[in-house]
Each structure stands twice: as structure tokens, then as C-alpha cells.
Simulated assay, not measured.
Amino acid sequence: MELAKKAFRIFADATEAYHQTDNVDTPCPNPYGEGTFEHVLFAKNWVDVVQWHLEDLIRDPAIDPAEALVLKRRIDASNQVRTDMVEQIDTYFRDKYAGVAALPDATINTETPAWALDRLSILAVKIYHMNAETERTDADEAHVARCRGKLDILLEQEKDLTAAIDMLLADIEAGRKYMKVYRQMKMYNDPATNPVLYAKK
């Protein structure tokens, strides 16, 4: 099985596992051995699906402002974890293909393999929830029909994205593409680069 298709299966399994409890505080029940690439992929999707539900919670118009602030800080922390995990996955690919010599006409891709997998992970969460919308018995038929149409598009995106990721990896392995990893260097989380934070020192 191509890597992207395998990754999507792991992402879908993690999303399904989350919904066994549907609780943002449930510990991640990772079935893969620590240190394996599969373990990282499962954990990555768990972060994404938990954050999806945190984003739902914070949009409650009746939410207590103090609770909203706690959730916002949790979402910010989750975003940092997500970025760190993407960079961890890119490090895996960079090490894996370190010995590949780029061809003279090799080109760089607009995004790294890990950021493409990040999109695939979030797509798995979208597909799960859109499918759930098509199965609602408390919604009218027009809503269900709209969601069926959206689900069809998401499933098409899954096919296109998995194929594109596997093609990118094949191109890197053959030297037709080469990787450069740019760290995100988020400034607002860093007390040395966020002026609101360093002004308080």
C-alpha cells in the first residue's frame, strides 16, 4: 500500500477511535509502538480531531468568557503541538531521503510531504463529520442532500490528495524533486519575538 493511503487509513482509524468517547480530555489510545512512524501519524490525527472539537466548543454563543479564554489558550497550545509534529514528520522524510542525489533539473515542491499529510489528516476528520451529517435524523432532507454533495467532493479530494502525496514521495525518491524544510518559527508563542510579551519584561 502506498504511504499516503496507509496514512489516511491510520488517520481515519484515529478519528474513529476518538469518537468512541467523543471527549476532548480522553487520552490518546495509540495502538502503534512508540517510536514508529505509524505511532506519530496516529498521534498527529488525534491532535487534529481533538482540536476540531475544541474549535466547536469555543463557538458556543452561550460560553462563559472565562471558559472561552481557557479553551483559546488550549487551542493555541494544540496548534503548536500540531506544528511540532509536522516538523517531526518532515524530519523523518528528510532523513529517509538524505542519500538521494537530486537530478540536475530537480525542482522543489510548494509544500513538504508532512504539510501535505497534515492536510490529509484534517481531511479525514472532515470526512468523518460530513458523513455524520448525512446520517442525521433530526435534519431536513435538504440539509442531508447538501451534505451528501459535500461528502462526495471530500472523498474526491481524498483520492486526489493521496495520489498527489504518493507521487511527490516517488519524485523525491527518484531525485526529480528535492526537499527543503523551513521551520515555522512562530513568533507569537516566543516571548523573545512577541512584542506584547517582551514589553512586559
Rank of each mutant, 00 (worst) to 15 (best):
N45V: 04
R73M: 09
L71V: 07
H19T: 02
T15W: 00
N189L: 10
T137K: 11
E156F: 07
L169A: 06
D25N: 14
L151D: 02
Y18A: 00
V24L: 08
F37V: 03
P61W: 05
L3I: 13
A139W: 06
I172L: 15
M167D: 15
T162N: 01
D138E: 12
E87D: 13
F93L: 08
D90L: 00
D95S: 10
R183C: 06
R183N: 12
K200Y: 11
K200H: 10
Q20A: 10
E173I: 01
D60A: 06
D95V: 09
G33K: 14
R9G: 14
A199C: 05
P191Y: 01
H39W: 07
D25C: 04
D105S: 11
V24A: 07
L123G: 00
K177F: 08
H143Q: 12
V144C: 04
D95M: 09
L197A: 14
D13S: 13
K159Q: 14
N194R: 02
A132H: 10
D118H: 13
L197F: 12
D13F: 00
M85S: 03
D160W: 06
G33H: 11
L154R: 09
P29T: 03
W52R: 15
H129W: 10
R146H: 13
I165L: 08
E133P: 00
P27A: 10
A142S: 14
P65T: 07
I58T: 08
W52Q: 05
A142R: 14
L120T: 04
E133N: 13
K201P: 04
A145C: 05
N194Y: 12
Y182Q: 15
D160P: 00
G35A: 04
K180Y: 08
D138H: 06
K126T: 08
W115Y: 15
L69M: 11
R94D: 06
V50Y: 00
V81M: 11
E67F: 04
F11N: 01
L161C: 01
L197M: 13
A139T: 05
V181N: 06
D160S: 12
T83F: 04
D138N: 14
D166N: 10
D13Q: 15
L123P: 02
L197D: 07
V40K: 07
T15M: 00
Y188R: 08
R148D: 11
E38G: 06
R82G: 02
V70M: 05
A170L: 09
P31F: 05
T112M: 02
L154I: 06
E38F: 01
K186A: 10
T107A: 12
D140R: 09
C28M: 07
L117P: 02
K159L: 11
I122H: 05
Y18C: 01
K180A: 13
A192W: 11
V47Q: 09
L123Q: 01
L117C: 02
Q80I: 09
V81S: 11
A192H: 11
Q184M: 13
A174T: 14
H53Q: 14
E2G: 15
E133L: 11
L71R: 03
D190W: 09
L123T: 00
I108K: 15
